[in-house]
């Protein structure tokens, strides 16, 4: 564990708490992509199967349980409790275009040809693009509530912080995980556009609005 990974994980944790806070305080999931949330639940469930047979640490165990439970809880809130506030007509990204290629990539790039390892690879590739339905929705509506942008910023910061973590581990532990690093860099790059608007507008006290 190093400072970058710890801050990254805490940022990830914060992003989920901000998302829950957004839904509970506005009593609405307006502006949140159900598809992205469903993809995250898929990512966590397929990646954390090792909960059942591999012990890493208490920290690791608690975080995995939290990520699985919170992502399922968000799905429940969106699908049942606040269902009327979710508008599927603007959440139109075709997730098949993400799931298919990620499955193919997992078959091509993995560390071992076993089901848990294939699912782990799949989850890494899927996580890297899971935000796309959300960003697509943002692009379509052209604006977002400030709290939603804080959620996305915390999520993006988590990914960005994993990059110095990998550089640090490369030097100190001689550890390189090419699959996670490649997918992680792609994932972080997807946030660049968003971060630009977030830093130049939201953090200056303006509303998140994309240029027409």
């Amino acid at each position: 564990m190093n400072i970058f990974r710890l801050l990254g994980d805490l940022s990830h944790l914060a992003s989920i708490l901000i998302l829950l806070q957004k839904i509970q305080s506005t009593r609405s999931c307006r502006g949140i992509s159900f598809k992205t949330q469903a993809l995250y639940a898929t990512v966590f469930i397929t990646r954390y199967l090792d909960l059942f047979y591999d012990w890493v640490s208490l920290y690791n165990f608690v975080m995995k349980i939290f990520f699985i439970a919170s992502s399922c809880y968000v799905l429940y809130l969106m699908k049942y409790k606040y269902r009327p506030t979710h508008d599927p007509s603007i959440d139109t990204f075709r997730v098949e275009y993400l799931l298919g290629p990620c499955a193919v990539l997992a078959l091509l790039f993995h560390y071992r040809f076993t089901l848990p390892e294939l699912l782990w690879s799949f989850s890494i590739f899927l996580e890297s693009v899971a935000i796309l339905p959300q960003l697509f929705m943002l692009q379509r509506t052209g604006e977002a509530e400030t709290i939603t942008t804080h959620y996305l910023a915390a999520l993006g910061a988590y990914r960005a912080l994993y990059i110095p973590n990998w550089i640090y581990r490369w030097f100190t532990e001689d550890m390189v995980d090419p699959i996670a690093v490649t997918a992680g860099i792609v994932q972080t790059a997807l946030y660049l556009d968003f971060f630009y608007v977030y830093f130049t507008k939201v953090l200056q006290g303006q509303k998140f609005e994309l240029p027409a």
């Binding site: 975080m63 782990w120 995980d177 996670a180």
Partner: peptide
């Protein structure tokens, strides 16, 4: 080495 690697990241 890949053979011994454990997925300890989240």
């Amino acid at each position: 080495p890949v053979e011994n690697k454990r997925h300890d990241e989240l």
